[in-house]
Simulated scan of single mutants.
Amino acid sequence: MKRGGAQHEESIIGASLVAATLGLSVPAMALEVTPYGAIRVATWWTSSTYYNPAGDPLHDADFTLDLQGDSYVGMRVKEGDFSALAELGAYNPKNRSAGVELRMLFGEWNFGNGKLRVGYAPSPYVYRSEMIYDADGGFNGYASLFDGRYAQIKLSMNNGFYLALMRQENVGLAGIGATNSPTTNAGNGYINTPFNMTSTTYMAGYTDFDTFMPKTVLGYEGKAGIVTYGGGVAGNYYKIRTVAGNVQTGKDEIYSYLGFAHAKIDLAPFEIKVAGHTAQNLGNLMNNAAAAAGSFYSNNPATGKNAYTYGGWGQLGYTLNNKVKMFTGVAYESNEMRGRTSDDRMAAFANLQYAVTKNFNIVPEFAFLNEMRSAAGTKQERIYATGIKWEMKF
């Protein structure tokens, strides 16, 4: 990482600490400031099986000890009906050069009948399991709908309904390159022109995206007795056009939608959590790096165009006492398209969460990830992992 980037990150952290100090030390501001955080290190032993094009197995075994990418420090600030949250996270061990991550930054106004949020936060359809492998992955990419964080405007009513308008993401599609995808920032003007999704400079070969609306999520969260539940729908739409050798080579429209539902049943000392979803072109809607390749729209006429996804996961938890909790769960997702093999994947885990003290937890876990077969019908990786998360929080 360049020194200038490090200085910038230090400046951000320093400014945050100064702001927190001022909030705590100047009563005249009438601010309530609450700092919090969690530092997490993971030790994992993994045994993986990969396959070459002929289907021959290739084996790999590794031990890793690293900081989890979901380690963070943050603070909550409140003044009357207004509040804010700022959270900085550690670098992702898979992408160290990216440096410190802005995890969340938003303000909320409680206007009596509900709340209005403006800022940067996870998608409202995120619902996680207790699986810890891959930085508290929670079945991420294996029927979990976690897709990162987005700039958004979210209205949440006290009756449980909410509406979120989110920054739209778009990607290329099979057969049409994504050389100007704002996701990759490859060869476009998006980096320096945040309100123009693709470059306005003509090139002999490029990909152009036309966007018309934000990604929109409408949902509901409620509770009935021992059941806490939620669900909703999400939608996304954009056009894509490609040029090669100064000639237009393709154009298409991509419609994506998602229907999702989840619930938690409190049967103390047991608890049950379930989640399910169905979608069209899920990869284009969420732009999730962990999304299955088979969940993206394709313009190949031999295999149709729209990809259809369904999946879900279930988890059983048991609280032994105030120090020990146990969880186990399984997830499955299938991505289908006319004229090709379905792209399926599944995962399972079992762990024990032990509170050594109020601020120190250790979580040993066994996990299994199975990519099964790709849309081309070839075998994909299988991973066995056993490890421990070491967590200090405040």
Rank of each mutant, 00 (worst) to 15 (best):
192 N>S: 12
245 G>Q: 10
62 D>I: 08
141 G>Y: 04
229 Y>G: 06
193 T>M: 14
196 N>W: 13
34 T>E: 11
147 D>E: 11
336 E>Y: 12
56 D>M: 08
207 T>E: 03
376 A>I: 09
161 F>M: 11
299 N>C: 13
73 V>Y: 05
350 A>G: 06
366 F>V: 12
1 M>Q: 12
100 V>G: 05
199 S>K: 06
341 T>L: 09
277 H>C: 03
329 G>M: 01
63 F>S: 12
147 D>H: 08
244 A>S: 14
392 M>P: 01
18 V>Q: 14
299 N>D: 15
303 T>K: 09
17 L>S: 10
31 L>E: 07
238 Y>N: 03
285 L>H: 02
107 G>A: 08
54 A>E: 09
110 N>V: 11
231 G>L: 02
307 A>P: 03
63 F>P: 03
111 F>T: 06
184 T>P: 02
255 Y>N: 11
167 R>Q: 14
84 A>P: 05
11 S>R: 13
177 G>Y: 12
339 G>F: 06
6 A>R: 14
285 L>I: 02
254 I>N: 05
106 F>A: 03
2 K>D: 10
284 N>R: 05
38 A>E: 13
193 T>F: 14
318 Y>L: 07
89 G>Y: 04
391 E>G: 01
170 N>K: 01
320 L>I: 15
301 P>K: 07
13 I>M: 13
312 G>A: 00
150 Y>S: 10
371 E>P: 01
137 G>A: 06
126 V>A: 07
221 E>H: 05
11 S>D: 13
108 E>P: 09
217 V>W: 01
42 A>F: 09
394 F>A: 07
277 H>S: 04
207 T>G: 02
279 A>V: 02
81 D>N: 15
172 G>R: 03
369 L>E: 03
59 H>C: 05
46 T>V: 10
2 K>C: 07
87 E>Y: 07
226 I>H: 03
362 I>T: 08
149 R>G: 05
77 V>S: 06
8 H>Y: 14
55 G>Q: 04
15 A>Q: 13
351 N>Q: 04
389 K>Q: 12
357 T>M: 09
62 D>Q: 15
314 G>A: 01
156 S>C: 06
220 Y>Q: 02
74 G>A: 06
163 L>F: 13
151 A>T: 10
170 N>S: 11
241 R>K: 15
237 Y>W: 10
350 A>D: 01
276 G>P: 00
73 V>T: 07
25 S>F: 10
6 A>V: 15
228 T>R: 00
391 E>D: 04
330 V>A: 00
302 A>M: 11
33 V>W: 06
48 S>Q: 11
33 V>K: 08
331 A>K: 00
112 G>P: 05
358 K>M: 08
378 T>L: 14
371 E>Y: 06
198 T>P: 00
55 G>K: 04
353 Q>W: 06
212 F>Q: 11
217 V>C: 01
379 K>R: 11
244 A>I: 10
124 P>F: 08
329 G>H: 00
154 K>F: 02
197 M>E: 09
365 E>V: 00
110 N>D: 15
73 V>G: 08
234 A>C: 10
53 P>K: 04
253 E>R: 10
148 G>S: 09
145 L>S: 02
187 G>S: 15
161 F>S: 01
24 L>Y: 09
68 Q>Y: 03
358 K>E: 14
264 K>T: 07
372 M>W: 05
248 Q>A: 12
316 L>D: 02
319 T>G: 05
26 V>T: 15
173 L>R: 08
281 N>Q: 01
152 Q>H: 09
33 V>G: 08
115 K>R: 15
138 G>W: 00
339 G>D: 07
203 M>L: 15
